[in-house]
Amino acid sequence: MHLSADDWSAIRLTLELAGIVTVLLLMVGTPIAWWLATTRSRLRSVVGAVVALPIVLPPTVLGFYLLIVMGPDGPVGMLTRSLGLGGLPFTFAGLVVASVFYSLPFVVQPIQNAFMAMGPRPLEVAATLRASPWGSFFHVALPLARPGFITAAVLGFAHTVGEFGVVLMIGGNIPGKTQVLSVQIYNHVEALEYGQAHGLAAGLVMFSFLVLLILYSVGGVRNTLGAGR
């Protein structure tokens, strides 16, 4: 099985994209998950529903609206242009932004579940032991929610690796810039290069299986993905 230079470039780009997106998602998703897990605000269900939208929406719908919002006449597009950053569509940065939205629920929900399963007690205990709210968060909440974070990181990563519709709408198919693995597989199939498509597709299957296998054998996933505790 021989992988072309474009194939390797797609693999590298995909891993890079998924890596950056996962880090960003953990940073963005943790406060959202915390808020959703602890707030009594009536906005909670609204925000929860918005975060979960990408689970049910066809990726093309999400990609379509992101394209419009980030396009030259969209609010985000105008903002990035006025800041001298240029347009986001058909760039790697655009892919990163789109992927963050696309994979957000897969990161927020496991973390939120982990925080909720933990309940308020550990934080109350920490407060009675003189830990400030930030101290409690970093030294108690985060470590106790670790299984949730592992699940979130793996799901966020894997889900970003597997995205297709959003990439196509936002990023197109530019080799070395936005041509990721899933799009490359599509290209091979279009060109009837089944052998090469197999090479990448089978690799992706193996990768996904290995990741999940490690997760399930470590045991981190059961708490947050399974039927509760």
């Binding site: 205990v125 920490a126 108690v140």
Partner: peptide, 13 residues
């Protein structure tokens, strides 16, 4: 203050 809860509530980690 020191607070002892009904369940020991030790930090599991």
């Amino acid at each position: 203050l020191g607070y002892v809860f009904q369940e020991a509530s030790l930090f599991a980690h």
